[in-house]
């Protein structure tokens, strides 16, 4: 009797040859309720939104088919260009700050030092806080007449600092609040990946005479790059679709400088009750999300070495 593998097949034989076992239907049956639920709560609303985006709407009632009118309105509206620009500035601005910060802190927390567990816990805390609370906290911190941050900056510059009220600094204020809340997520993922790197690789690199930078460049980063890219994809989608934080912090203002696409969808659909137009903007966001995700996945596949 030869040895059998984990799946009961003799090593060297193809698992797909021979008649398909009937028992394979069983796991499919088990998955069906979950798949059905996903289809119901995910695909049904998407189909509904697609349908709504091509229709005239009056409050929540869908009317006649109007073709691409909502889409044309979006692309000819001056505010849409600003919304798109804001969304990309917010997404990439947040990524540019949160990812290096997460990487740096993960590298630090991966080293042994006294109180490491305490610092790990403390640094993860902002991720636990809800977007709403984060927004309220930063609104208070940035408040020109109540907030300690504005007070300190005002004392340093001898002027009334108004981060969220000034059109030139408002987006920066929203990005900082967002980074504060979301960097721990990337940090945890990267830290977990760092802990899977075999120590032998570092030893081998050092024996070969590699310095700190080269160890990071040729050992550490290649080993964590998949995780890094996954964190990038997840955070990109999270940032791009954000509503609550800018809504509570600035309401999209001043002068629409912090109105992201997600916030525009919310405003059009739930404030102005233009559900058809809101659905069209949501569809545009959906397409952008898919495109960005596909681009990241392509990069991930091309760069994947381990």
């Amino acid at each position: 009797m030869g040895q059998t593998g984990a799946l009961g097949a003799t090593p060297g034989t193809h698992l797909t040859t021979g008649p398909r076992p009937r028992t394979q239907l069983f796991p499919v049956c088990l998955m069906l309720p979950a798949v059905g639920l996903v289809l119901l709560v995910t695909f049904f609303p998407i189909v509904q939104s697609v349908s709504l985006s091509f229709r005239e709407t009056s409050y929540l009632k869908a009317g006649g088919y109007i073709g691409l009118r909502h889409y044309r309105s979006f692309f000819t509206d001056a505010l849409s260009a600003l919304n798109l620009r804001n969304s990309f500035v917010f997404t990439f601005g947040s990524l540019a700050l949160s990812l290096p910060m997460a990487l740096g802190l993960a590298l630090l927390l991966n080293r042994p030092f006294p109180g490491r567990t305490f610092f790990r816990t403390m640094l993860i805390l902002p991720w636990v806080v809800s977007q709403l609370l984060t927004a309220l906290l930063w609104r208070w911190l940035d408040s020109p007449l109540l907030g300690p941050l504005a007070y300190v900056l005002g004392a340093l510059t001898d002027s009334r600092v108004d981060i969220l009220g000034d059109p030139s600094t408002a987006m920066g204020g929203v990005i900082v609040a967002n980074v504060w809340r979301t960097f721990p997520y990337a940090m945890i993922l990267i830290l977990a990946a760092l802990q899977t790197i075999p120590y032998d690789l570092y030893e081998a690199a050092r024996i070969d005479g590699a310095g700190r930078w080269n160890v990071f460049r040729y050992v550490t980063f290649p080993m964590i790059q998949n995780t890094f890219l996954i964190a990038t994809i997840i955070l990109s989608i999270h940032y791009f679709n954000m509503i609550e934080l800018p809504l509570v912090l600035t309401g999209g203002g001043p002068v629409n400088r912090t109105e992201l696409l997600g916030l525009r969808v919310y405003r059009e659909a739930f404030v102005l009750f233009k559900f058809g137009f809101g659905a069209a903007v949501a569809m545009i966001m959906f397409v952008i999300n898919i495109a960005v995700s596909l681009a990241y996945i392509k990069i991930l596949r091309a760069e994947s070495r381990y």
Binding site: P144, L145, L164, D166, P254
Partner: peptide, 12 residues
């Protein structure tokens, strides 16, 4: 008045 009132809400 501060410029910040442009994006300030009633509660603040």
């Amino acid at each position: 008045s501060p410029i910040g009132q442009a994006s300030m809400d009633s509660e603040t």
